[in-house]
Each structure stands twice: as C-alpha cells, then as structure tokens.
Design a protein around this nucleic acid. Structure first.
Lengths: 208, 208, 208, 208
DNA sequence: TACTAATCGAGACGGTACGTCTGGTCTTGTC
DNA sequence: GACAAGACCAGACGTACCGTCTCGATTAGTA
C-alpha cells in the first residue's frame, strides 16, 4: 500500500540506494579530481550504477553535482539573533566564510560556479538553492538594523551584501586566498564605520 | 644582419601573421559562442591556420584565449590623479566596471575566470597579467590616501579592494547583474563613510 | 530465453547493421580509391557509423578491410573432381586466376597483401583465411595425382604450387599484367611436361 | 673552373655528402624499422640534413628509398655462361634467391614492392631498374637454350620465368618462407622435366 | 499465481573535440 | 645557388566523453 495522495504508480519504484550511491560517488570524485576529469562514466562505475540510471533522473552532469552538493551542505546555517545587528552580521559572515573554506565544500562549490558560467540552468539553480538563501538572511538582518536605527539610514542593503559576500567570492574564485573567520572579522572591521549611524553632530552639519 | 643582442636563431621565424590571425579568430569566436562550443579546429579554420601551428605555440585552448584577451585589453586604463582620493578611486572603479561590462570583454573574461578554476597555470597568468595590475593601481591610491590623512588610518587597503572589486566580480560571476558606472557609484556611496577619516572629536579622544 | 550454450552476455548486443554497413562501405571505398586515400573517417561517414564503433571492433584500418574482403569472397570456389588430375588442376588455376582479376577483388586483395608487409597480424590472417584454403585445394589434388600415378612420383606438390600460384602473384603484385584463363592455360601448358609421369622406357631404366 | 662540357652552373654545387648521408640513413632506418614508422623527418635528422634538401632532390619518400636500395644492390649479379643451359639457369636463380634473402636487401625490397602497389611511378621505376634486368638475363639464357635445342621447342620463356621468379616473390611477399640456394634447387629440380627437350620416341608418338 | 509496468545493470551506439603525427612546402640566415 | 633549421598548411590518426539506445533481468503492485 502506498501513501494516499500519491497516485499509486505501477512498476518498480526508484531505487533510493542508486540515488544515494550516485550522489556520494559524485561528491567524492568531485572533491578528489575537480569537475574536469570527472566523467559520468566515472560516477556510474564508482557508484555501481548504470549510466542510464543517472540520465533517467538527472538531465546532465552538472545537475548531478548540484544535487550532490545540496546534500553535502543541507545542514542549515543557523544565524542566532541574540545580540546587536553588528554582532549578528559578524556571526553570519563568519559562518559563511567557514563553510566556504571547508574542504568538502570549497572544491565542489567552485566547480559549480565555474560550470554555471556556461550553463544558465545551473546558474539559476545555484542562485536559487544556495546563494539566495544566504543573501536573504543577510538582507533581513541589515534591513531590520537600518529600520531600527542600528545601521545608517542611507545604507543600501544589497550593495553592502554585494561587497561583503563579493569579497568572499573574490577570494574563492579569483585570488584563491584562504577564507576563514579571521578574514570575516577583517571585512567587518573595515566596513563597520560605513554601517554605523552617523553621529548627531556630523549629521547636523551635513544636513545644514 | 640582425640586431645585436638578439641571438639570431636559425630557421624560419615565427609567423606574426599566423599569430595575429589566431588571436583575432579566438577573440571573435569567444565573443560569439563562449568558451565551450569553441573548438580549436574552429579557431584554426577561422584563422586560416593549421591546428599544428596553434599547438606549437600554445599548450591548450585556454592559453590561446588568455593571449587573445591580453591583446584586446592591452589599452592601459589611465587613472588620473587630479582630484582628491575619493574622486580618483571613484574614477578608477567606474572605469573597471565599464570595462568589465563591455561586450567584447565580459564574455571572454568570464570564460577565462571560469576556466582558471581547473587550470592553475591559467589562474596564475590571469592574476598576474590582469588582476594584479588593477589591484596595484587601487592599492597605491588608497595607501597614499591613508598616509595623507585623506582616508581613515586604520583602513586595510587590501580588504577594501577585496570588497569593492569583489562586488564587481560577484555581479560578473554569480548574480549576472549589470556592472556599470552607476553601480560603481553605489558601491562608493555606501562604503565611503568607512573610508573618510574619523571626525576631529572622535580622533582626539582616540589619540589622547 | 536464449539458446543454451550461448552465455547470454548482458548489455546491448552488437549491431549487425553497423557491422554490415562498415564492411560494405570499406569494400566500396577500397575498390574506388585504394588503401591509401581511404580513411577511417571516410568509412565511418559512408557507413553512417561513428568512428568509435569502428575502433571498438577492429584494431585498425587493415583489419576492417580484411573482414570486408572476407565477406566479399566468402563464396567458395568449387573445384569439380570429375576428369583427370591435369584437367582438374587447370580448372582450379583458371578459377583462381579469374577471381584474382575480378575488379572487386583485385584492388582490395593487392592492398591487403601490400599492407600485410608491415603488419604481421594481418599477414597471418591473410594467409590463414585466404591463401591457405586455395593452397590446400591444390595440394590435395596434386598429392592424390602423385599417389595415383597420374603425376610424376618425384614431384614436390608445394614447390609446384609455389610456381603456379607464384606466377599469378607475380603478375598481381609486380608486373601488373592481366591474369585470366588464358594465362592459366599458358602456365599449365608450360609446366605440364614436368607433371606427367615419366615415359615407360625411362621409368624402367630407373626402376631397374 | 668547372669541367668543360658541363654548363658552368653558378652557385653552390650539390653536396655529395648530403646525398650519401640521406641514402645511408634511409637504408639503415628502413632495415631497422620497416617502411611505416620511417618518416622523412627521421631520415633528415639521422642524416644531419635538412628536409628541404631531401625534397629538393627526390620527389617523395619512396623515391629516396628507391635510390637507397639501388645503391645497396648496385653490385651486379654476374651470370657465368660456362656450362650448359640448365646449370647456368640454376646458378642465376640461386644468386637471385640468395640476394633476396640477404638481410639488408629483403626488408627494403619488400617495402618497396609494397609501396609500389599504390604508387605507379615507383612501380615503374622498380620494374625498370631491378626486375627488368633480372628478367632480361634469364630470358636471354632460356631463349638461347631453346634455339640451341637444349630446352623444349614449345617453351615460352616468359611463362617459365614468371613461374620460377614468381615462386621467389611468393615466398618473399606472401608466405614469408626463407629463400635460399636450396629452394632455388628445389624449384629447378621440379620444373626441369618441363625444360628438357622431349625424347625422340615420345615426340613421334605424340605427333603421330 | 500470473500479469504488467517501470526500474536496474550492462554496454553498444552516433556525434564530436581532443591533441599528436606525418607529408610536403616555404622562409629565414649562413656558407 | 645550396644548405640547416625549423615554421607552416593540410589532414588522418586513435582516444575520450557525452547523452541516447537497446538488451535481459528485477521488482514491485494488480488481477
């Protein structure tokens, strides 16, 4: 008997074992060898699965990697909202930075971003499933802080996020430099004066 | 008779015509079709050159594109140092933003950055030949401004550059949003308070 | 259910259509253009088959032609054993000569013999699959005739075959002269006195 | 000053050293590696000569090998005409057989015959420069013997030569069996009864 | 207990790009 | 001029990968 609501499909059901084997194999091979040099035949062989099965469930190689990466990073980043806005933002950025640098995430993520440059569908999926969620968290935090007067009024949350997260991506994709909590701190330390509301005196002079 | 100092190699000299034809063809094809879907045979055919000649001088497709792109953007960005530091920085970022968005540069550049993710040599070349020069200009400007008291003392030039340029790369590689002078202005407007020296009152207290 | 005895291999079975198309295309192209100037790409294109498929089943171009030629000449030469030994031998040689001169056989066969000069495997295959069968027929005929007293006792069947067939190959490969039934007759007419048993008088003296 | 009679060509004369080096290198490489796997670049490098020089004096690779082989076998085969026709023929065939089997001749010769199958010019050159001379010697010998009554009247010299020499070529190109004086003897022993004039008695009976 | 329908493995297939190699030509500067 | 050096064009080679396909063998639910 099947779950009600699902239209009781006849025939053999999809093998969960095969699905897991594919994703695991893809993840491992990607971590080991990077995206090029990683072939679908490799994944199939390594997963003990037929190529057919892969193409039955995923449209192409990138989609497999996408799912594989999704599983690997499914653990939600929990952004505690205990302290003041600056502290919270710092915590967020630190967590994202740490995650980006994790060995089992950095290589695959870089590969996916690279592949997305010539694969619009992948680019969309990547943005919607990973990047948007991170941005949304940061955007909510900053917006609230601006409203609450904790951050400058004239701040543009999206631009600030572009800069902070952009710096992380810059290191990830261009300079290759390490991305860790220290670096997150440096970013926050340097941009912090732009986030704080202007002192009364200064504002009066300016607005005068 | 050859110029003294040049060791007068024997044999037929490299054909400058062939070299130019290859680079031009690569540039055009890359702009039209992107890096995948661009084959070496295409370049050879389009350049009227044998594949052999390409592989004699470049180790792979990416290296050709690297050189092609280098020629295309060899025109120096001139950063005028007339006004104050902030204005100069704004001019710089505007120029870089405009360049990044130019149709004959954006596609190739994106393709090169993507390819550099799994090609360490290309990554190094890209950093040394393009990115380093841009950074150097910005770094000099900011450093001087800090020394001259035009910018905050505790600023870390590299971090600031990471953020401003990182935002540009973020749009280039991740969000795909347009990159233009307006965006450059937005970046500068938002980070500017972090660049300005602290007001007298604050500084006196600090330095006291 | 499969035929017992056949091990029922898994996977998609080899395409008989592709096999036939390759062999036919190879045969036709070889007849038209000769072995050089005949490329594997040509065969693949002409057969509507991928190059991959050719290389999956044949180690090189010559092996394809070998099989193609085998199919073309699979029709057995039937040597009737009705009359006396000399007549039968003449019939055999005439048939072989005619076959060698046939337009769809001569060019391919010459090409294969030529290629076999620097391809030991091909040479072996050629000998075993074509030349040996022809020789075997002639050898049986001559041996029996010697035993039956129809041919000279001291004849060496292999040497006789070397000479008769050698003459055919000589014209085929060296002089390029035509090879037909008339030529076969000439060969037999000239060597015939060496085949006949010695006249009684002479034999008596010898055996005495 | 040049030799009178030769039209005083200006410029540097052809380098005999280069010519010799090319032919020697070609010969050695051919003996070592066979015709395929023997490239013009190989010859040039091994001879310390530029490829240009080779193509200046020979139209293609086969022509070089032709000349190289010509030098190697320029030593004339001297056919002594001392004894009776049969003995002389035997001597001739023995010499040709021995020459064909010589290690520095067999490989190159086989390669040339093979190459001549798809190179009409080479085929012509090969026939005219090597094969014709051998045949001519044998033809003269047999013709005279027929006229002198030493051989059968109704013998066709060309057909006999086709068979004897054909047997040698057959071993050379098809069976790969050794070719030596013993083999020459076997050939002569087996065909000899066909060469001898018919005994009077037999002829009378036949013509009766 | 069959029957049906979708899955699975294996692996052959068409298509296409890769990077290498060779043949034969052309272009330098030197002798 | 001939020569060594070596770059050049043309084009075949054999390999690799992608995504599709065709098999026989499983494995549920349905009759």
């Amino acid at each position: 008997m099947t779950t009600p609501g699902e239209p009781a499909t006849p025939g053999r059901p999809r093998s969960e074992r095969a699905r897991q084997a594919v994703l695991t194999a893809a993840r491992e091979l990607l971590t080991d060898k990077g995206l090029p040099g990683l072939t679908v035949d490799d994944i199939a062989r390594s997963a003990g699965v037929s190529k057919n099965t892969i193409y039955r469930w995923w449209p192409n190689k990138a989609a497999v990697l996408m799912d594989a990466f999704a599983e690997a990073t499914s653990l939600k980043l929990e952004f505690p909202a205990d302290g003041n806005a600056l502290t919270n933002l710092r915590t967020q950025v630190r967590q994202v930075a740490t995650l980006m640098n994790a060995p089992r995430a950095r290589r695959p993520f870089v590969a996916l971003v690279a592949a997305s440059q010539h694969d619009p569908e992948l680019a969309t999926a990547l943005r919607e499933r990973f990047i948007a969620t991170r941005r949304a968290g940061a955007h909510a935090l900053i917006s609230k802080a601006i409203e609450a007067g904790e951050f400058r009024q004239r701040l543009d949350a999206d631009i600030i996020i572009d800069m902070i997260y952009g710096a992380l991506y810059y290191r990830l994709l261009v300079s290759g430099a390490p991305i860790n909590a220290d670096y997150a701190d440096q970013l926050l330390d340097n941009i912090e004066p732009a986030l704080r509301p202007e002192p009364e005196a200064t504002r009066k002079i300016e607005t005068a």
